[in-house]
Structure formats: structure tokens, C-alpha cells
Simulated scan of single mutants.
Amino acid sequence: MSTSSEYAGVRYLVDDVQAAIAFYTGHLGFTLHTNAAPAFADVVRGPLRLLLSGPTSSGARVTPAGAGAGGNRIHLTVTDLEAEITRLRDTGAEFRSDVITGPGGSQILLADPAGNLIELFQPAP
């Protein structure tokens, strides 16, 4: 069991740990927690600890067949989605969808340098 003082961890496999660190800390408000590049680093934002596993890390071992993969992504809530989109486009960030709006709010997908997905979400008023 985790306590409220622990992070929730998500592992992303990345091709370039330094590029991932720069992306998450420079564009999405994460703080560097551990830097063991080129193999591994982790960054935090609030209660999220994002583990960035490079090709030489143990976390980058091949996922067993049948384990599945899909549209998994981290979900970051923002207060002004359009402003975030503009800011990130100005940095050359790669978006993977258009803005989608539903009853709960609006969202867009972007990719980190290794192609992992991040959903930026603005709740409906």
C-alpha cells in the first residue's frame, strides 16, 4: 500500500534520456529527481514520478509477448489548453491529435521525443 507522501510511478521507455529530461522539465513543469543518464532518470510533477528508462536500463527489457500495448499515456491537467498548445507548438512539440472536446472538457495528445503520449486536458467549466 502506498501512502499520500509517495509518488505514483509511471515508466516510459525512451531512446534518449537527456532529451526526455529536457522535454519534461523544460516544457511540462516536471522537476528532475534522479539523473543516471544515459541509462535512467526520473522526473516528478506533483504526485507523479515519471521513470525515463533508456535503452541500457533494466526497465527497457522487452515486454513479454501478450502483455499488450495500447493508447496508454500520462494525463496532465492544464488551466488554459489553447495557451499550452500555442506555447508547445512554438517549441516544436509534436502533436498527435487535434483538440477533442466532450462533456468533461477538452484534450489534445502530444508525443515526447521517444513517441510516448501525453494528454493535456482542460476540464469543462
Rank of each mutant, 00 (worst) to 15 (best):
G68F: 09
S2V: 13
L48R: 08
P38N: 05
A41D: 08
E84Q: 14
G104I: 04
S4K: 04
G70I: 08
S106K: 12
F121P: 12
D80A: 13
P55D: 12
G66N: 08
I100N: 04
G66Y: 11
M1G: 12
R89F: 06
R73S: 13
L76R: 08
S97Y: 11
A20I: 04
G54D: 09
T79R: 12
P47Q: 14
R45Y: 10
L76G: 02
N72D: 03
G54Y: 11
R49N: 15
Q107L: 08
P47D: 11
Q18M: 06
G115F: 00
F30K: 08
T77K: 04
T77Y: 07
A83H: 05
G29L: 09
L13W: 00
T91Y: 09
V99F: 15
R49E: 13
P47G: 04
N116Y: 03
T3H: 06
G102V: 11
L50R: 03
G105Q: 08
A65G: 09
P125S: 11
R73E: 10
I118H: 05
A83V: 01
S106A: 15
G59S: 07
T25F: 00
I85D: 01
R11L: 07
A20R: 07
D112Y: 13
R49C: 15
P125T: 14
Q122M: 05
L50P: 09
D16M: 06
T56Q: 15
A67E: 12
G59V: 04
A69M: 03
G71S: 11
